[in-house]
Write a protein that binds this DNA or RNA. Structure first.
Length: 591
DNA sequence: GCCGTTTTCGGCCCGACTGTTTTCAGTCG
């Protein structure tokens, strides 16, 4: 870390999370372990840089941050290192930490495997399984060994992959750095990240420069570069210290828009558009668009499509080879009006209802539906009927004050293993909006899970089926069930489907979203936020929605507060409620 | 490590599921 360039919140959070993992593997106090893990999440969700909050003393006011954490943040800010982390890393081989990511392996089993078998990497563990050495360990058996092998397979497929959010963070950090470089002219993110692909291999950047060599030198010498993989006169690729591969290509200024198009991909799309351009007498390459013997100067990326006689295709739709035109009302970020599905301190969120609603307003949303967990999610302090009523009183008071955007009473109620909902019907009827989600028994047999979900979405008390498959990208496969049957049941009963915008979920999957929308099922793009920063995840939902060609009119959370409440009432067979009272915004006089 | 005190030490998220056991440990949500 360079002097005067304090580590950002993600970097600090990653250090705390790693300390937590390592303490767990060394058999430290479980509460201390959890404390480090929870403070890592807290720092990740802080609205301001932790270094700045440390400087002005506000860091210590954050719940979960004590003197110990403040001291370690200070150490990181001042020295760029954490002695505790260095000590722990010396004790535990890095491959052992990777084993924690195997489904079914926790710290106890990983420790047993590491210390008894001497296994210290996923590859070694796979070999040990194939030699039937795992099943002979105390507390292990055939079934466990089989599941570990399956988990290792999943891990191998996920290795080296990055969530879109991780890649975008790496891209942003790199761009911020390069924009300070005087040699840089234009800079852009290209490749799958620009297309908003949910899981990517790395980050591709494109630039033009006064001095390509100087820009590339600045790129490979960034303080957070861990390794330089390749370097030519016009390109370089590096691996950042968080493991993200980043490549930078520098092109000549007249080639910019052609190169932007080509580097964005997908390969099939570029090939199709290039072929269409060829048929009209143009040659399209990363060096530019050539007609006959001269380079055509392009004013914008759209010119590439004009040369091909094709309609412009937004990057999110370029996975398709054919340049099919986007619908005029393809969803854009500004279309999303409301925040549905966000947690607060009432359950496992980190901020109050008021704080979350205020942040939603700052981000440009016009209504906020609080959706904490229900009681079955006891690990998350889920709400029972009595606490629900207490929360309603708080929401009523907040709305009566008129000090923030309209706050709707919602809940994320558990869908229990038999498909029933986790709160009595008279309580469910009191919410403005009910999201129902599966959080337990995710491994039911497909037929059982299908019936469970069909029963749940058929209830007149549910409005939205939350994160329908329960998948965690790069972490866990979704539950197996008959998606078509569940979608048919949603369509039959007028129940909406969630597009959970958390970048770890992006669930329902983009492939099924189109099928849902084609059935007339409204799609709710929900951040599932647990802190202030999580509210910004809507952007990933919008990207995925665009990839599924969702139109504004197909998105439930694109409705204004009155239309949304009317939809919720109609779902229950009730007349629309009276319009939300209009108040002048704070500080504004009535006209 | 953090928190909240009955202020300096004890408690911290808990129930279900799985696979292993033969009464329960480990993992997960």
């Amino acid at each position: 870390m360079a002097a005067g360039d304090p580590p950002d919140n993600d970097t600090i959070a990653a250090a705390f999370a790693e300390v937590s993992d390592l303490l767990e593997l060394t058999g430290d106090n479980p509460h201390r372990v959890r404390s480090y893990a929870s403070v890592a999440r807290t720092i990740e969700g802080l609205p301001r840089p932790a270094s700045a909050m440390l400087a002005d003393g506000t860091l210590l006011e954050v719940k979960g941050v004590g003197e110990g954490t403040a001291a370690r943040v200070r150490e990181l800010v001042e020295t760029g290192r954490l002695a505790l982390l260095d000590e722990l890393r010396a004790k535990v081989p890095p491959g052992v930490v990777e084993l924690l990511a195997v489904q079914g392996l926790g710290p106890k089993r990983v420790r047993e495997i590491w210390q008894t078998l001497g296994v210290s990497s996923p590859a070694e563990l796979e070999y040990a399984c194939l030699e039937n050495r795992l099943r002979d360990l105390k507390g292990f058996g055939d079934k466990t060994q089989e599941n570990v092998l399956k988990g290792l397979g999943f891990l191998r497929r996920a290795r080296g992959k990055r969530l879109l959010s991780q890649a975008r963070a790496a891209a942003e950090r790199t761009l911020t750095r390069l924009q300070r470089c005087e040699a840089a002219l234009r800079l852009a993110v290209v490749g799958p990240v620009r297309r908003m692909v949910t899981v990517v291999d790395g980050v591709d950047l494109l630039a033009t420069a006064h001095d390509a060599a100087a820009l590339l030198e600045a790129f490979v010498t960034m303080p957070f570069v861990a390794q330089v993989r390749a370097r030519t006169a016009t390109s370089a690729s590096v691996v950042l210290e968080d493991g993200t591969p980043v490549s930078l290509a520098v092109v000549d200024e007249p080639a910019w828009f052609a190169a932007l198009f080509v580097a964005t991909g997908s390969e099939a799309h570029v090939a199709a558009v290039t072929a269409a351009a060829s048929a009209r007498g143009y040659r399209l390459s990363p060096d530019g668009l050539v007609e006959g013997r001269h380079l055509v100067v392009l004013e914008e990326e759209e010119d590439v499509y004009r040369a091909a006689g094709a309609p412009f295709v937004p990057p999110e739709l370029r996975d398709d080879a054919a340049p099919a035109p986007a619908p005029d009302d393809l969803l854009v970020a500004a279309d999303v009006r409301g925040v549905l599905h966000a947690h607060t301190r009432w359950s496992d969120g980190a901020y109050s209802v008021r704080e979350m609603a205020d942040r939603a307003r700052e981000l440009g949303f016009s209504w906020f539906a609080v959706c904490d967990h229900s009681a079955a999610a006891s690990y998350a302090h889920g709400l029972d009927a009595a606490r629900v009523r207490e929360q309603w009183a708080e929401v009523d008071a907040l709305n009566a004050s008129g000090e923030t955007i309209p706050v709707l009473k919602g809940i994320e109620t558990d869908i229990l293993p038999d498909g029933s909902l986790d709160l009595p019907e008279d309580v469910l009827a009191g919410f403005d909006v009910v999201v129902g989600s599966v959080h337990s028994a995710l491994r039911q047999a497909p037929a059982v899970m299908t019936e469970r979900l069909v029963r749940a979405v058929s209830s007149r008390f549910i409005h939205v089926l939350g994160h329908p498959t329960g998948r965690l990208l790069l972490g866990r496969e979704g539950s197996a069930f008959d998606v078509e049957r569940v979608l048919d049941a949603c369509a039959a009963h007028g129940t909406a489907i969630e597009l959970n915008a958390n970048p770890h979920r992006l669930d329902l999957d983009e492939r099924w979203l189109r099928a849902a929308a084609d059935r007339g099922i409204p799609i709710a793009i929900d951040p599932d936020a647990h802190d202030l920063r999580g509210l910004e995840d809507v952007v990933y939902g919008v990207g995925t929605a665009r990839r599924a060609r969702l139109r504004r009119g197909e998105v439930l959370t694109a409705l204004d507060v009155d239309a949304f409440r009317a939809w919720c009432a109609r779902r229950r067979g009730l007349p629309p409620p009276a319009p939300w009272p209009v108040r002048p915004a704070p500080g504004e006089e009535e006209a």
